[in-house]
Amino acid sequence: MGRRLVLGMLGLGVAGVASARYVQGGLESFLGAAADKDPTGLTSLLPNGGGFRYYSVTSSVPDRSAADYRLTVDGLVTRPATYTLDALRALPQTRLVRDVQCVTGWRVPGTPFAGVQLSRLLDAAGVRPGAGAVRFTCFDGAYSESLTLEQARRDDVLIALSMQDKPVSHAHGGPVRLYVAPMYFYKSAKWLSGITVTQKVERGFWEERGYDIDAWVGRSNGREDHPTS
């Protein structure tokens, strides 16, 4: 009898794995709707309760305010530059509303991001011949990312100053984060502090640990999610 209980649990587990793709969608939309009306916030503790999950690779991340935030652009450029938050805000802003897809499975529908197109900063700096990629570094001291120059020039790649129509909060990588709309969200580096134009693509933090460099949603990392952009 006890043995049957153990085997029964195993059977349920296998059935759960097999049926997840049918159950999960319904459960997610139900919980999403419940979370909208839930004043206690308890639904956010349930799996797939909708919303973002916080990932940081370091133990703590310093706070940067409008006063001490700086974004540097250097490497293979003719005019290296340093931007303050106000300088970034003064540039033309682009707003995109796309789904956010994490490589671990969660997806947040219709999330607005706004900021400066990366291509604008690259053009202002003057990319030198021979450059082929862009490397991003972050003031958490550990995270890094890379895009090919061609990817970096897409018009859906932003230096994001706002997310969900609010200034990007510290937890979401504020005051300034990268936003690469068509790729898995690990490409959208938080706490962005440096943009370096390089000759070739250098692997970023997660790519060193096995993630794909060209992280197109639905076409990489062995996943088949619906494309976000």
Binding site: G16, V17, A18, A20, R21, P47, N48, G105, G222
Partner: peptide, 16 residues
């Protein structure tokens, strides 16, 4: 991928 999504689903809910 299908099995992995299912595993994540079961792992999440069973953990609760």
């Amino acid at each position: 991928i299908g099995v992995r999504i299912g595993s994540t689903f079961v792992h999440d809910w069973l953990s609760l």
